[in-house]
Amino acid sequence: MLHHLKVAALAAVTAIGTLAVTPAFAEAPRVAVALPGMITDRAFNENVYNGLVMAEEQFGADTAYTENVSQATQVEVMSDYARRGYDIVVGAGGEYTDAAERVAASFPETTVIVLNGAPTEGVTTINYNNPEFGYLVGLVAGHVSETGVAAALSAQEFAAFTNVVDGFRKGFQTANPEGEVLVAYTNDWADIAKAKEASFNLISQDVDVILPYLDAGWVGVAQAAEERGIHTVGILHESDTNLVSARLDFARALAWAVEKYQDGTLEPQDYVIHLTSVDQLGDFSDAVPEDVRARALEAVEKIKSGALSFDTE
């Protein structure tokens, strides 16, 4: 009899314990991110890291991250987090897509997210509609540019960047049909000195607005712009030389995903974030006249209403 009582008591305690634990578990998701670079790059990696901080502050998430995860260790790092019971494991960047697919297959309980990744079975991918963001900064650049020549600078050629450039060119030429957009690559995401030299070279070819798509390298572009008195536009960075920015804000994307996970509505599918809200834009610089600002805001409305849309590759 006593024995039965003990079992009942134990069952009751366990039940209460479970009840007590489950809601707490739902309230505080555990989120881990694998990053390709360092959180101090003032660009993509830092942006994703800020998303982690937002998730912690807004949703009380228990967070962890690993920096400088090389291609060879992606699966190991992400699997390790899944094994340690993290609810959400994020690969920061399209290069994590293959690793994410394998981790998602091995750990079906874990929600695996890739930022900027190609749609993949079993994985949640979050993408920005790149041309929309390129278009908006291109439009502003086209109206402000005096020489009619702008440039986009990245480290390597890849689909997301090409899509940004397509939008950028379209925006630039909408404002100035004669306008020309150059494209250049530095071959290094973080080499500030080289990005600066590349910018000087662009400037000597009449470029007066540059769109950097780099990690820490953008600092060199901003320095060159400041020294030679030209402008930049930002989709990954903020600086004083920016005419305006329309940021591919992965901090916002990550926080959004964590919120959706909490609501229980995050599915393993591809999500595309559009440029539909004015608060996605940074501040306009003084060099941007009122009527150009109005046109930029109008463009956001057009994208929102569907009057302006872009095909991506």
Partner: peptide
Amino acid sequence: YLVLTQVLLFSDKMSAG
């Protein structure tokens, strides 16, 4: 030279090969 004349800041791995 990189820091004091070219970029006036320090960034991780700035030796870049």
